[in-house]
């Protein structure tokens, strides 16, 4: 049988709600009969209710000091989150841009064989031109002749650094027959590009883009021996798909062109292979002229 000393511990546990119902009933039954234990229970309950008297408020600046120390030790996480969001956004934008470029590349690479087939055929048939920058009477004569005699010329296509070709009359007719099988939009675009490319070809040797087309071509013919020296005047040809305009540019004008494109939010891509333009899209293609490939690479670096 328990004595009062045994119940002291149970009274303490009772205050803390640590007894099970059976233990609690047994304790209360004892307390009802034991005056000393009942007094002990009453006074301990009273005592436990008075511990709040020990409460002391901290110094006035306590919480402020704590928060200041926290800020000093730990920069606000929200900034990190914003930074993370910023990085994430930048990553998404970069991924989207890369995806767009990759898509465009795939898209136009899939079109390339259509253009390349005709181009390669013409290249195989053409003996006039070997490189854009190479001085050649035959090349110049052929180019001038094409420019003067027909509205169907050659394409500005630099295929892996190979030269664009200029077809002869008979070859041009064959090419024209094949050309008529294409849809009208592509044909018109190609014709436009060919015409302008031809102009660009003539201008390559002239070094004077202010001259009228015919005069420029004529001058190219006349100054054929200097064309190699002046062949670097034009760096690339630029075509804005939406405008359908192809024009040659000098290297020193490239930065201004890029600035203009960026100002007008026109995406632009560099290419060294023949591509077709999508008339429904708005972008610019900057095709490096083969003679300037090495310089282009230097410029890229």
């Amino acid at each position: 049988m328990k004595d009062c000393s045994d119940y002291q511990e149970q009274i303490s546990q009772y205050l803390d709600g640590m007894l099970c119902s059976e233990e609690e009933e047994a304790l209360l039954a004892h307390v009802e009969q034991c005056a000393s234990c009942r007094l002990l229970l009453e006074e301990l309950i009273d005592l436990s209710h008075q511990f709040h008297l020990l409460e002391v408020s901290p110094p006035a600046s306590f919480s402020t000091t704590v928060l200041r120390k926290i800020q000093l030790q730990n920069p606000p996480r929200r900034k990190k989150q914003i930074r993370r969001i910023g990085f994430s956004t930048a990553a998404v934008i970069c991924a989207a841009l890369l995806g767009t470029i990759a898509w465009q590349t795939v898209k136009y690479n899939t079109r390339e064989p259509v253009l390349s087939a005709a181009t390669q055929e013409r290249q195989a048939e053409s003996t006039a031109l070997q490189t854009w920058g190479e001085p050649s009477d035959a090349r110049t004569e052929g180019a001038v002749q094409n420019a003067e005699e027909t509205d169907v010329g050659q394409r500005v296509v630099s295929d892996g650094g190979k030269v664009p070709s200029v077809a002869s009359d008979g070859q041009k007719k064959d090419a024209d027959n094949r050309q008529t099988e294409r849809d009208s939009i592509d044909s018109e675009m190609l014709l436009d590009r060919e015409e302008i490319a031809l102009q660009a070809a003539g201008l390559l040797g002239s070094g004077t883009d202010q001259e009228p087309e015919g005069a420029a071509i004529q001058e190219t013919n006349e100054t054929d021996g200097e064309s190699g020296a002046q062949g670097d005047s034009y760096f690339a040809v630029v075509t804005v798909a939406e405008q359908g305009e192809t024009r040659p540019i000098k290297r020193e004008d490239l930065s201004e062109l890029l600035y203009t494109l960026e100002e007008e939010n026109i995406p632009y891509f560099y290419c060294t292979t023949g591509v077709e333009l999508d008339p429904d899209s708005s972008y610019a293609l900057i095709c490096y002229l083969p003679g300037d490939i090495v310089e282009k690479e230097a410029f890229s670096r």
């Binding site: 409460e55 408020s57 901290p58 306590f62 919480s63 928060l67 926290i70 800020q71």
Partner: peptide
């Protein structure tokens, strides 16, 4: 940090 500041103010007396 503001929420934690409220927690500090709420429990500072007890902890102190």
């Amino acid at each position: 940090a503001e929420a934690f500041g409220i927690l500090v103010q709420k429990h500072e007396t007890k902890v102190y």
